[in-house]
């Protein structure tokens, strides 16, 4: 076996419903009955992931703060209409995503249109026979560990991520950096799961090319 896949999701940052905790659905039922402490518990469970979603969509700490406040207040006001057909977290993410989109539109910074057409992002090249061409000669993954704290590498990462189309960047950040599931991202961004997977993979390929250039691949 040449290499092993990473089978654990990047979910070390998650803090949502934990084993042994009162389930979200029970807290929602209590909150719907007027228990503000139950609503506060839901806020505590979901605020960090909602913050990340808002931050990734708006690109601004200040906007993320406004989105977060608006989203939780909207959720509280709409709570009587929540029927539990979707997970509470998915419902909440959708509210926050809509709030972020409205804020971007007000600022005339609407994201690039979501499209099912794959964009021409930079990626590996192949020969007519389907082989990597040029083949990667340098395995810079070992040097990557040593350069984790390198400032120039940090700048290269920032520039590479900033160069992605909006929806590709958002999907990549939410999945690979923040640890949301494909389903959560699809629900929040109104995409299909295959569309999320496709954007994620294209974004990773484009970023790998850029970092390969940095490492002199």
């Amino acid at each position: 076996m040449a290499d092993t896949p990473t089978r654990t999701a990047p979910a070390e940052v998650r803090e949502q419903e934990q084993p042994g905790q009162v389930p979200d659905v029970e807290l929602v039922r209590k909150a719907q009955a007027g228990d503000a402490a139950a609503f506060a518990e839901l806020v505590g469970r979901h605020q960090r992931q909602l913050y990340r979603l808002a931050l990734r969509m708006t690109g601004s700490e200040a906007d993320a703060q406004e989105v977060l406040q608006e989203a939780f207040l909207n959720a509280y006001q709409k709570l009587p209409n929540f029927r539990g057909e979707a997970q509470f977290s998915s419902w909440l993410y959708r509210i926050a995503a809509n709030s972020a989109l409205m804020r971007l539109r007000r600022k005339r910074r609407a994201p690039d249109a979501l499209t099912d057409q794959p964009l021409e992002l930079q990626g590996p090249r192949f020969s007519a026979e389907g082989y990597l061409d040029p083949a990667p000669l340098s395995d810079w993954s070992q040097r990557a560990d040593e350069k984790m704290m390198d400032r120039e590498l940090g700048t290269a990462i920032d520039q590479a991520v900033a160069g992605l189309p909006d929806d590709y960047r958002t999907v990549f950040l939410l999945k690979d950096v923040d640890g949301l599931s494909n389903e959560e991202i699809a629900g929040a961004l109104d995409l299909t799961v295959p569309a999320v997977k496709s954007r994620l993979h294209r974004a990773r390929l484009a970023l790998r090319e850029k970092l390969g250039e940095f490492f002199g691949e």
Binding site: A2, S141, A144, M148, F172, R204, L205, L211, E217
Partner: peptide, 12 residues
Amino acid sequence: FVRTYKATRALC
């Protein structure tokens, strides 16, 4: 390619 693809994710 696989190793550098995974390293890209870890670095980011």
